[in-house]
Amino acid sequence: MPTLSSAINASASALAAERTRIEVAVSNMANAESTRGPDGQPYRRRDVVLAPDRTSSFDSALGKAGAVGVSVAAVVEDQAPFRRRYEPTHPDADPEGFVTLPNVEPQNEMVDLIGASRAYQANLTAISLIRDLVSRALELGR
């Protein structure tokens, strides 16, 4: 069934997108204290921008819309200002004793991680439900 396969495509696209979100959240958390990157600057938090993927949703063979998928439109750097913390003994402390730290709040990253995991799980469930439907439909032909 064409529209059902579009539904599986949509769910599969979500798996890829949510996995990207998980990877970015984990990268943010891992670098929450990285004061000096390859460019000498602290790590800047990254954000995933999602957008609906309507190009593959219109099933021209049937003339009706299938399921709308999702895609990662971009991974951007969060332009929020860096944090500053007073720690004169830190090797990267400036002359006033302040360290410039990445603009990462670990608890926010955790929330994103959990949300992305739940969405990933839900889309996995969706795929198996659709697969069940298709196999039941095939039983009609027996």
């Binding site: 696209s13 997108a17 999602l50 399921a67 969405a119 839900a122 889309n123």
Partner: peptide, 17 residues
Amino acid sequence: VAKQVASAGNLANVDTP
């Protein structure tokens, strides 16, 4: 089937602004 397809599209976009 239509309901499943609609829900699959919704679930795929649960985090889309």
